[in-house]
């Protein structure tokens, strides 16, 4: 699998954890960004197949990034997985309404990450 993935989180340790877990799942082509403001221009340059983002970040938050991605003609079909500590019901509903493809709450397991990614791509392939 040579899918190009962008991992967005303000904590470098969390980015490293997600990157290692994605490596274990066979994804090797991974880039990183530390908030929405740095992520969006990288995404707009093109070539990314999948976005994994945190919610709570300084600058542009993950939910704002998700909305910006869905509002961008070139990016609006990009699959987005949110991996976040935000777990209020209305937040999950808001993310769903904004068009998120999967929502994982921290702390999470490697198994959960695998399941959600599998599910996202099963739906896209179907």
């Amino acid at each position: 699998m040579n899918m190009k993935i962008l991992v967005v989180d303000d904590f470098s340790t969390m980015r490293r954890i997600i990157k290692n877990l994605l490596n274990d799942l066979g994804f090797a082509n991974i880039s990183e960004a530390d908030d929405g403001n740095t992520a969006l221009p990288v995404l707009q340059k093109g070539g990314f197949d999948f976005l994994v983002t945190d919610w709570n970040m300084p600058g542009m938050t993950g939910i704002e990034l998700l909305k910006a991605v869905r509002a961008d003609d070139k990016l609006n079909t990009l699959p987005v997985l949110m991996v976040t500590a935000e777990q209020k019901r209305e937040q999950i509903v808001e993310a769903a309404e904004a068009g998120v493809n999967g929502y994982i709450v921290k702390p999470f397991t490697a198994q959960t990450l695998k399941e959600k990614i599998d599910k996202i791509f099963e739906r896209i392939d179907a």
Binding site: N56, I63, A85, E86, Q87, K88, R89, I92, V105, K106
Partner: peptide, 15 residues
């Protein structure tokens, strides 16, 4: 608004 990690027994309306 983003509120950070929910803490068991403290935060309301969380999963």
């Amino acid at each position: 608004k983003a509120t950070g990690p929910a803490v068991p027994g403290v935060d309301q309306g969380v999963v």
